[in-house]
Design a protein around this nucleic acid. Structure first.
Lengths: 226, 226
DNA sequence: TTTAGTAATGGTAAACGAAACAAAAACACA
DNA sequence: TGTGTTTTTGTTTCGTTTACCATTACTAAA
């Protein structure tokens, strides 16, 4: 029997995804300390003793983004003994889908958005975590229209299709997409149109911000409503 | 800022599912110590410092069942601060699908199979964990034929259908099921038949025990092959 | 007002998959 | 030989997804 008395550290890391500049992007922070000093990492932190994991993820999310009422789901727990060079740190990873318009983030040298298709060198196993969050997002998108979590309050069907294409990483047929989109629950047609410059205006749509039902309690967590 | 210096305990709990006596059953152990003394619980244990989470789950599985090469998948990490009355214990839950014929378990007063539709009072949040493992198993079954993990080496299509019905909790059409089953990759038709007593013999099938591909690395883990 | 350009919009045929449904074949036993 | 029980097999229908273009609606510039 090996030494079983020492305890482990446990952290929560949050992959925060958004659509920005026509690309799927992830929020990264630059590490200021060793290990992996000056490498980019996904935001994270230690779990407080009195705090459940969802709340820890929400706290970290809020510290970085100051947003509320977002899509947040537990992703996977990564526990390789060698994932942290300084000791045993198990991390429970979450991922969040946010609207970039809601964010008040000013990109600095230590915090910023990075396109998921062109990631810088990352600390720890964070690259793997991000890749897995993308896979999970695709799986979710096939089941429910989570993409609206990434879209502005009001959007055109073309914008929505663009979001799908960015996540699914493939082109979709315009008419088929429109047909399916129009039949999804919660999508409401507005009496407003885009005022674009030199082309035909597009109708705007929005999504009913309904309370996500309890059947999905294990993988959907809406933000705390204070 | 609250007290952040103390650490957490982390355990791994494994929901072990099988089909036995025409029912979906889960392996439970009776607790001998407080808290929840004499209540049933799913097998679990502390994660060793040098051990990754998958290996911890495999170790616990092996301690209880002495089986190898089984379907094992990380389920969810439960971290409510109040889930353990004695302190902060975060558990990373796994679930496993095993063939009851492979098991050498002799049910005792402290270890035994229990039908998932008729569970005794359980310790901690273990009821919730089991319920979630059933939900996840159903989700997996809709994607890939994991049910064969629960079946004997050789089985009839009727047995396979029975397994599906037990997991999905609904009756399936015999001919439609057969059609879909026959088209699944990996199912091989044998030149053997059941030697039953007084009815038409049924053809036997088996499943190619192929290495599960790496695309599913995050949710499928085959047992260690020594 | 005309024209050109760009994007939104509406429909249909083919392919595919899901659901419903009945009859014949094989064996054991009486 | 007949009866009972279970396995085995195929077709039709229906709805949904996929593939595929042409027309319309609007803006800006000529």
């Amino acid at each position: 029997m090996v030494n079983e008395t020492k305890t482990h550290e446990i952290t929560v890391d949050v992959v925060i995804l958004t659509i920005k500049n026509n690309a799927l992007q992830v929020l990264l922070v630059k590490r200021t300390n060793e290990p992996f000093k000056d490498k980019w990492a996904i935001p994270g932190g230690y779990v407080r003793l009195s705090e459940n994991l969802d709340d820890a993820a929400l706290r970290i999310l809020k510290e970085k983004t100051a947003v509320d009422n977002i899509y947040l789901e537990q992703l996977y727990t990564f526990g390789d003994p060698l994932r942290h060079p300084d000791g045993r740190v198990i991390t429970c990873a979450y991922f969040a889908l946010v609207r970039s318009e809601d964010m008040k983030i000013v990109p600095t040298a230590e915090l910023g958005w990075h396109k998921v298709i062109d990631l810088p060198p990352l600390a720890f196993d964070h690259k793997e975590i991000i890749q897995y969050s993308l896979k999970r997002t695709r799986e979710r998108l096939e089941i429910c229209p989570v993409a609206y979590q990434l879209l502005p309050e009001k959007f055109t069907l073309t914008e929505m299709q663009k979001a799908y294409e960015l996540i699914m990483q493939k082109k979709l047929d315009k008419r088929n997409f429109r047909k399916k989109a129009l039949s999804t629950d919660g999508l409401v047609e507005l009496e407003e149109y885009t005022k674009s410059s030199s082309k035909r205006p597009a109708r705007l749509y929005t999504f009913e911000r309904i309370e996500l039902n309890s059947k999905r309690a294990h993988f959907i967590k809406k933000g705390d409503k204070k």
